[in-house]
């Protein structure tokens, strides 16, 4: 793909149907970060958790090593809310969707990589969705120049930052857009920034998300063409 070279998104790779026993799965690589997702559903649901009007979504976030902790719980909740808003849940009342996110390698922009992976896995499972969620992480770096206060020059936005970029940045923002209208579904921004900087991050993320959607489309069409063959 030529697409990768023209964009500062790093190396994007996605393989669907990697796990045999799941209803849908995807292995998604963005830069050095790699996430594997398995999706089950719509499947049977415990009576205590059932919702009579719509399906429930459960997300399990597993770190590369160790047992899941509070940080994973936070990610789970974030991903779960996105799934709940995109999946047409009222089609499958009294059932459950189960999404398992396994982090294979984390070299920055983990949240956006995980969301994109979930998006591809849900697509692979053929679950009806309002739209596909697309996530982009943007980091804001500021170099404090002590002598002159050329603030605009010292500002730098990094799309899909690596762990090193994240450490050097003052603020990190992850935006999730819908693949149809490019309206925002979810956002997570941490660190001090002015609302102008926030808008700039959002604008850059929106641009980048269009490329990712194109990448989604390409990899799906590749998958479909091999299926036919």
């Amino acid at each position: 793909m030529d697409l990768n070279s023209s964009l500062p998104l790093g190396n994007l790779q996605c393989e669907q149907k990697v796990l045999k026993n799941t209803d849908g799965s995807a292995m998604y690589t963005a830069g050095e970060t790699n996430v594997l997702v398995g999706v089950y559903g719509p499947a049977d649901c415990k009576e205590s958790k059932q919702d009579v009007k719509q399906a429930v979504v459960e997300v399990n976030f597993r770190p590369k090593i160790g047992i899941p902790g509070v940080a994973e719980k936070y990610m789970e909740k974030f991903v779960c809310k996105i799934c709940e808003s995109v999946i047409l849940r009222s089609f499958h009342p009294r059932t459950a969707f189960s999404v398992i996110v396994q982090v294979m390698q984390d070299q920055g922009s983990l949240l956006s990589c995980a969301i994109n992976a979930v998006s591809m896995a849900l697509q692979d499972a053929g679950i009806s969705m309002r739209c596909m969620p697309v996530a982009v992480t943007v980091a804001l770096q500021k170099k404090e120049k002590e002598d002159n206060e050329m603030k605009d020059d010292s500002k730098k936005f990094v799309i899909s930052p690596s762990t090193k970029d994240e450490e050097e940045s003052v603020a990190i923002a992850t935006f999730v857009f819908d693949s149809a209208q490019y309206d925002s579904i979810s956002a997570y921004a941490c660190g001090p920034m002015t609302s102008d900087e926030y808008r700039e991050c959002l604008r850059l993320a929106k641009e980048a998300s269009k490329h990712i959607v194109r990448f989604f489309r390409d990899s799906v069409s590749r998958k479909v063409s091999t299926d036919i063959r």
């Binding site: 808003s85 923002a173 209208q181 979810s186 956002a187 997570y188 920034m193 609302s195």
Partner: peptide, 27 residues
């Protein structure tokens, strides 16, 4: 927000897609 009216933390979880103007209202 902080005392300089900067945004320190923005968290938006789920819900339907929303145009950015609405988000700016919240800010």
């Amino acid at each position: 927000t902080d005392e300089h009216d900067n945004l320190i933390y923005v968290q938006r979880q789920g819900g339907l897609a929303m145009p950015e103007a609405e988000m700016q209202k919240c800010v």
